[in-house]
Amino acid sequence: MIRLENITKYYPSKLGHQYIFRNVTFDIPAGHNIGILGSNGAGKSTLFRLLAGSEYPNKGRIITDLSLSWPVALTTGIHQQMTGRENTRFIGKVNGIADLDKYEQRVRTFAELGKKFDLPVRSYSSGMKPRLAFACSIAIDFDVYLIDEVTSVGDAKFRRKAKEALLERSEKANVIMVSHEMDEIRQFCDSAIVLHKGELTFYNDLEQGIEQYQAL
């Protein structure tokens, strides 16, 4: 279970605090592959960043005994000055990987970067960076994978490979996904959380959740 306990999140503006969540307490149940749904500006990306730990609430806390990935395919944890190999080994160490050589090989094989694996990430194309980030994440056994628009990972061939890997992972772990593509949500998820006016509602039935979201 992932528990949001009395979460308040706002962003400052010239008009004062713009609140996304006010004193929200909500349990995200374990054992589900969940799509996060909501209109533009409802707070989907904010909730995702809070779960990932890349942003913090202004008040309250998130409690879980599960291991959560960073957002799969996003490159926020990749250091531009380091090589692909250096990034891989650093990420492995941070996540407590015992056999770094084996982990490195898995990442290198999956990312398909060739010789560029030993070049600084700053020299990578826009498609190579998320491929490295995706490979680093999928090679670690997390309890929950946070997935943000998996269709943005690399070219069409790599996207197919990425989806297959995530579907395989979702058989043993769970996913929490943000996507604007309902076909993608249906492919990965069995339930939904709908965000509306700062409130979260869990739908055990995915189609019911999609119906409620589309009615907003």
Rank of each mutant, 00 (worst) to 15 (best):
D143W: 08
K102C: 10
F48G: 01
E211P: 00
G16F: 02
T76D: 12
I97L: 11
V178R: 03
Q81W: 05
G16T: 02
I91C: 06
I28L: 07
K59W: 05
V94M: 15
H79P: 01
D27A: 01
F110A: 01
S179A: 02
G209K: 13
E149N: 09
Y19N: 07
A165K: 14
L195Q: 06
T151K: 13
I140W: 14
T8E: 04
A98E: 14
L167C: 13
R22W: 05
G43Y: 02
S191E: 03
C136V: 06
S67G: 12
V72Y: 00
Y145R: 01
V107I: 12
G154F: 14
Q18C: 09
G38R: 01
V153A: 05
I28C: 02
C189V: 03
S152W: 01
A215R: 14
N6A: 06
F202W: 14
E164F: 10
F90M: 14
V150I: 14
H17W: 03
I97T: 07
L74W: 05
Y213C: 04
L206N: 00
G38H: 01
S13C: 08
P29T: 10
N87R: 06
G53H: 10
E171P: 04
I91L: 05
I97K: 08
Y19I: 06
A133I: 08
N40P: 04
I62W: 08
S69D: 05
K172W: 07
I63K: 12
M128R: 12
E199Q: 15
L68P: 10
K197V: 06
I2E: 02
V153G: 12
F188L: 10
N23G: 01
S123D: 13
E211D: 10
I140F: 13
T201F: 05
H32D: 06
D65P: 03
L4M: 00
M82W: 10
I97M: 08
S69V: 05
N40Q: 04
D183P: 04
C136M: 15
L66F: 02
G92L: 00
F158T: 05
K163Q: 06
E207K: 07
K44E: 04
Y203R: 10
V107G: 09
A165G: 06
A173E: 04
M177L: 11
I176T: 04
D148N: 13
A98Q: 15
I140N: 15
G31T: 08
P29H: 07
E149I: 10
M128L: 11
H180D: 10
R106L: 14
D148L: 12
G41W: 05
D65T: 09
D99K: 14
P130M: 11
R85M: 08
I36D: 04
L200D: 00
K14S: 10
H196S: 12
I147E: 01
N23D: 11
A135Y: 09
P71F: 00
